[in-house]
Computed example of a mutant assay.
Amino acid sequence: MTVAQTENLNIIAQDHMPSPEEVKAQVPLTDAATATVLEGRRALQAILDREDPRLFVVVGPCSIHDPVAGLDYARRLKALADELSDTLMLVMRVYFEKPRTATGWKGYINDPYMNDSFRIDEGMQKARQFLLDVNEVGLPCATEALDPIAPQYYGDLIAWTAIGARTAESQTHREMASGLSTPVGFKNGTDGSLDAAINGIVSAANRHSFLGINGQGRSAILRTRGNPYGHVVLRGGGGRPNYDTVSVNLAEKALAKAKLAQNVVVDCSHANSWKNPEYQPLVLRDVVHQIREGNRSVVGAMIESFIEAGNQSIPTDLSQLKYGCSVTDACVSWETTVDMLRHARDILRTTLPTRTSPQ
Rank of each mutant, 00 (worst) to 15 (best):
Y113Q: 10
H289R: 09
T101V: 01
D82A: 15
A330N: 04
A74E: 03
A32H: 14
G200I: 07
T351K: 12
Q216A: 03
K24P: 00
L250K: 08
L131Q: 12
F186Q: 03
Y108S: 00
L88G: 10
V94L: 00
R207G: 14
D286P: 01
L211Q: 06
L284Y: 11
L48C: 09
A168Y: 01
K257Q: 11
H289V: 07
A162K: 04
P18Y: 00
R349P: 02
N249W: 03
A330M: 09
S247C: 11
Y153E: 10
S19P: 02
L44M: 08
T350D: 12
E22N: 02
P353G: 14
A301K: 10
G104W: 05
L55C: 12
R292S: 14
N214R: 03
A13D: 11
V288W: 07
R128K: 00
L71H: 05
L132M: 07
L318D: 12
P28D: 15
S313Y: 09
A309H: 13
V184G: 05
R223A: 13
L157Q: 15
T30F: 07
E304V: 09
K275D: 01
T6N: 07
I11D: 02
V59E: 12
D72C: 12
T350E: 14
I314Q: 07
T190Y: 03
L250A: 00
D111R: 07
R292I: 02
P53L: 03
N115Y: 05
Q280F: 01
V202A: 11
L80M: 13
D346K: 08
M114K: 13
L77V: 01
S305L: 10
L341P: 10
I109G: 01
D147V: 07
T34H: 01
V58D: 13
E278K: 04
A309P: 03
S178A: 15
N110A: 10
N10M: 13
R100Q: 12
D66P: 03
